[in-house]
């Protein structure tokens, strides 16, 4: 472990490589996290199935590429399919728990996450899958820093998606209704906004966002049925650090998390990278709690 740290100091290009690659994957983390914040803020639901939506999006890309379609096309397709799934889940399950306490939503979406993950495990098996995009690699700094073009592309697409989402929330009627509901659902209802429809759209939109993320993940990285929980945990962590409704914060936290994870994976060994993510969550929560306790602020 110390040796690896030493390497980072002695060979800064490796550090640059790790950080840059981390930032590229961090964009996807940030996008998924923004979706979680959206659902949390608008519907007061913490969606534990967030990562499973990402995983499903990844499988859409895998299946399409297995059938000879270029997986880039899977990004919009996954988004549309996942929107449908999100909408369906809202109409069958989520609408019943929208008014209930946060823990009910955690447990129910946790159940959904297990259904989805086990479903994919049963249908496709537990193997690691990729959707080949057949793109090359960029070599920087004399070949010491390698960046896969597909990772750069996925980063760019994630950025585009974020811009589209923000414009949608700011400009479109539905987007404005979503933001109004987030601020005060009762007032929104009084003003004639159909909050039930807004909730359905929000949940679907979040799923679509995750689906698109998943397609990018399948192309630039790998998917298997159990990648969901780490994505959920990352999203949650990012939202905690950035706060609800703070897009700039979400992006900063997402990119830093990607970089931190990559560096930690190198220093501790990649087999500990997931443990690092989960322990980081615990540390972040403990730190947040300690900060609140110091302010004597116990009341919610």
């Amino acid at each position: 472990m110390l040796d690896n740290l030493l390497i980072l100091v002695q060979a800064p290009t490796i550090t640059v490589d790790l950080v840059l690659n981390g930032i590229l994957v961090g964009a996807i983390f940030a996008l998924a996290a923004y979706g979680m914040a959206l659902v949390w803020g608008v519907m007061n639901i913490i969606n534990i199935a967030q990562g499973e939506f990402v995983m499903l999006g990844g499988y859409v890309a895998v299946i399409m590429s297995a059938h000879g379609v270029h997986p880039l096309l899977a990004v919009p397709v996954a988004a549309v399919l996942l929107f449908g799934l999100g909408w369906l889940l809202y109409r069958t399950v989520i609408f019943r728990i929208v008014e209930r306490d946060l823990f009910t939503s955690i447990l129910a979406t946790f159940g959904i996450s297990i259904v989805l993950q086990q479903l994919m495990n049963t249908v496709f098996g537990g193997d690691v899958q990729v959707a080949q995009a057949h793109l090359g690699t960029l070599l920087l700094m004399g070949g010491m820093v390698t960046l896969a073009q597909i990772k750069l592309l996925s980063f760019a697409l994630a950025a585009v998606l974020a811009v589209v989402l923000v414009l949608f929330l700011r400009r479109s009627r539905l987007g404005q209704a979503i933001r109004a509901t987030a601020q005060n659902a009762r007032a929104a209802r009084v003003l004639g906004i159909d909050t039930d429809r807004v909730y359905a759209a929000t949940f679907g939109l979040n799923a679509a966002l995750c689906g698109a993320c998943g397609a990018l993940v399948a192309m630039a990285y790998t998917v298997h049925p159990y990648i969901g929980l780490p994505y959920t945990i990352r999203s949650f962590m990012i939202v905690i650090v950035a706060g609800l409704g703070n897009l700039a914060g979400v992006i900063a936290a997402g990119l830093s998390l990607g970089a931190a994870e990559n560096v930690a994976g190198f220093v501790l060994g990649t087999q500990y990278q997931l443990a690092f993510v989960f322990l980081l969550l615990v540390v972040v929560l403990v730190w947040r709690n300690w900060r609140l306790a110091r302010k004597r602020q116990y009341l919610k």
Partner: peptide, 23 residues
């Protein structure tokens, strides 16, 4: 450390603890 957190933060934190221990 973690029982100072309220409700849902505790729930998700323990979810992280369980997986981290397994990893």
């Amino acid at each position: 450390f973690v029982l100072g957190m309220r409700g849902h933060y505790f729930a998700i934190c323990t979810l992280g603890l369980g997986v981290a221990a397994g990893e």
